[in-house]
Design a protein around this nucleic acid. Structure first.
Lengths: 146, 146
DNA sequence: ATATTATATGCAATTAAGTTGCAAATAGTC
DNA sequence: GACTATTTGCAACTTAATTGCATATAATAT
């Protein structure tokens, strides 16, 4: 076990997406990997107070543009961001996985496994594009504690 | 055909949800019914400039609290609101319908028909709650025009 | 119809999020 | 180590979300 993912691995991720390796990007990436859940800009600000909020803001955006992260809609109005799985490339996001929001602890997770996604039927002449599924419920941890 | 839904009907809707009948609420309700699509706070401000933004803000919230409208997540960060179908009550929202976002005209619609919703499988111990599905694509109008 | 009471509204002000410009600092390359 | 393009931090600005309070209005009782 590692306290945090090896720097070398995180550097590779950045380079693979055409991004320069900077302290801020390594730290943000590390946070996403270790928390293994979706994070908001505010979460970043709280966990990485050493960096300016504008820097974190731009880091998030460069990660989204390059396909490292994807934006997750949220009815609270505050966007969250999650790490893209290998199926995502800089040009095309494939995040047909679920986004699971725990109503107890508030944590937002990307769930890759259960991709039995909807068999969606739209009205005539409608063309189907990307599908986002947000599931509310209780996560494993909260479910067991309760 | 009516230019706008009869006042009597809209009054009934408000009363049924335990809300006082006011001009602002009648006008907001009318707008939602006539536009038959999801609207944002900004849309309200533009269409009902006679009312203060705070009043519209509070009208939206009282409608959500009482089950007249539901909030629709949106990755743009700007929330939209849609009329609840009959399945919604003040205490429990059942908006298991789709939310369709047209990538061409930007319009957001609630689509009631195709409720062939996901057969969602979650990891062990996870408890399933409400499901939100946001479909991106091209709506009928834009599809035909193109 | 009028008075009473609780609620809704408008205005002013505040909080918080998102965004941009620019000079200084730093990463990648020679 | 020097050079160039990118990144960072700071300041400032824009926009959305939210609250307090005095006034106006809806629902209810008289």
């Amino acid at each position: 076990m590692f306290a945090s993912m090896e720097t070398r691995v995180r550097k590779e991720i950045l380079k693979k997406h055409g991004l320069r390796v900077t302290d801020c990007r390594l730290d943000v990436l590390d946070l996403f990997i270790n928390k293994s859940q979706a994070l908001s800009q505010k979460d970043l600000e709280e966990n990485l107070a050493a960096y300016d909020r504008v820097t974190l803001y731009r880091t998030l955006h460069s990660f989204i543009d390059s396909g490292v992260l994807h934006k997750i809609p949220n009815d609270s109005g505050i966007a969250s961001y999650g790490i893209c799985f290998d199926t995502c490339s800089p040009t095309k996001h494939h995040h047909d996985h679920l986004h699971f929001k725990c109503n107890t602890c508030g944590q937002l997770e990307c769930i890759e496994e259960s991709v039995s996604l909807p068999n969606i039927r739209l009205p005539q002449d409608y063309k189907l594009g990307a599908v986002d599924v947000i599931v509310n419920g209780v996560c494993g941890t909260c479910s067991i504690e309760a």
